[in-house]
Amino acid sequence: MSILKIDGVTKRYANHTALDNVSFDIPQGCIFGLLGPNGAGKTSLIRIITQITGADSGEIYFKGEKLRPSHIKDMGYLPEERGLYKKMKVGEQLLYLAQLKGLTKDEAIARIKEWVARFEIKEWMNKHIEDLSKGMQQKVQFMATVMHQPSLIILDEPFSGFDPINANLIKDEILRLRDNGATIIFSTHRMESVEELCDNIALINRSRKVLDGPVREIKDTYKTDTYQVIGNGQLLITSPDFEVLEQHDNHGVFRASIRLLDGASPNDLLRYLIQRVEVHSFVELVPSINDIFIRKVKETYHA
């Protein structure tokens, strides 16, 4: 079941096309990475999902329904350009933003108390935003995004500007929210930062979707059957089933990247090695999302 279905969305601005017939699904309850370099069209797509702008053509379905204004209160959006009213007190600000998301005053107050207890920030409530440290402001900002318990949370470059401690705190919160049933969309150009978190991804480049699907499947598709082996001995591979891509020898210790050819299995390679050398380490070289992205982009250019 997909919470969000993006169907042929196109968005043009005066001088350029921001999104060109982009389609993909976002499954319910997953952490979804919307990845691509700067200017690829990620923010444009998010602004269409959050109904800040409209698509020129194409449709978006939220929980099976065409997107409409009432869906807004079921989404939480942390934009890349984010901030708070500096002269407002933390408590007032949270109350205001929560009420704008459709919570009643009583509900909002109850939620704020809950989050204040979790983040242990009771003493901040009467401080002005401008008196808080950057890290504290970021926490408040995150609270404001998820306060109304949206089922879809969209975070645009969520870790830019977060210090490592807060970034980890936010990561834990995101996982907790996912476990409670929310779907989270991460949008970032720093692909390595979200690789470990994402269940599914979509890659966007130059306003087109390049690739999408579950991370595991994508990695399976793009794995090159290459293994890294470290061990003792003189390694000399003569079998036609294996190809040595790279090899370093250093005082009897070797490190080599070996690719399996023509249906050979990892166990075949391991058996072959054990007969000749002493193996200390045997690891599959899995391509990073970044590698896959670069490969995919190259493919599309050459094609």
Partner: peptide, 15 residues
């Protein structure tokens, strides 16, 4: 002020 505080996009995702 809303523009320089960068709160405007947060706001217009609600209103």
């Amino acid at each position: 002020e809303e523009k320089t505080n960068r709160i405007v996009e947060v706001m217009i995702s609600s209103v």
